[in-house]
Amino acid sequence: MLFRYFFSLMLCFLLGNASAQAENASTYKLASGDVIRINVFGEKDLSIEEIRLNDAGIFSYPFIGDVRAKGKTAAEIEQLLTESLKGDYLVDPRVSVSVLTYREFFISGEVQKPGGYPFQPGLTLRRAAALAGGLTERASEGRITIIRDQDASRTPEKATLDTVVMPGDTITIDQGFF
């Protein structure tokens, strides 16, 4: 009986987590440094296994030319490619776009190994600090700021170790006063 309850609870947790990750993937806005895969069903020449968005968030695609992906979701790119290929090139194109590698986030200050690290969905500041070798003994858990990549004003926000990290974010962990 207890096993069934525990199993049901774990199943609900896993399904909820998968749903949250799917939601994040569907609302994730592409930008410079992201690597995507484009698959056009039945059209090997139009499928691209791996393409990195350039500094302007643009990639070049056969027959279409430059495609501005910055600020768009994978679903929006799918729709744009489908509409562009339909008619002149294909009758009923079925296009899928997926993010292979997210752009890096950056962490500096009182961590063992400051620098850029690959983003992973569900990443918190606590896990980001662990990826950077952990906090130094002088680090202050109360003096953490984050600059969101999507924030055009680049204004630092106060953050905690439980704050969610997004691709391209810049995290600074300051020294504590003893």
Rank of each mutant, 00 (worst) to 15 (best):
Pro114Ser: 15
Tyr5Glu: 07
Ile48Phe: 04
Gly65Glu: 07
Ser19Glu: 15
Leu85Ser: 10
Asp162Gly: 07
Lys29Tyr: 00
Asn39His: 03
Arg4Phe: 06
Glu43Thr: 06
Leu90Ser: 07
Glu49Ala: 13
Gly16Met: 11
Gly168Tyr: 02
Leu80Arg: 13
Ile58Lys: 08
Ala25Pro: 00
Val165Arg: 01
Ala18Tyr: 09
Thr160Ile: 08
Ile48Ala: 01
Thr172Phe: 11
Val91Glu: 15
Thr172Lys: 10
Ile36Trp: 00
Leu161Met: 15
Phe7Ala: 13
Tyr89Ser: 08
Gly87Trp: 11
Arg143Gly: 03
Tyr28Phe: 10
Gln79Ser: 15
Thr136Tyr: 10
Ile48His: 05
Phe63Trp: 15
Phe106Tyr: 11
Phe7Asp: 05
Arg4Thr: 02
Glu43Ala: 11
Asp34Gln: 05
Glu110Arg: 00
Glu137Val: 05
Gly57Arg: 04
Ser32Cys: 01
Asp151Glu: 14
Ile48Thr: 08
Met1Asp: 14
Thr124Met: 12
Ser60Arg: 07
Arg4Asn: 08
Ser26Ile: 01
Asp169Ile: 02
Glu43Phe: 10
Cys12His: 10
Thr101Glu: 15
Tyr28Gly: 00
Leu85His: 11
Phe41Val: 08
Gly16Trp: 10
Gly109Lys: 12
Phe63Cys: 08
Arg127Thr: 05
Pro93Asp: 14
Asp45Arg: 12
Lys44Arg: 15
Gln175Tyr: 11
Pro121Leu: 12
Phe105Val: 02
Ser108His: 00
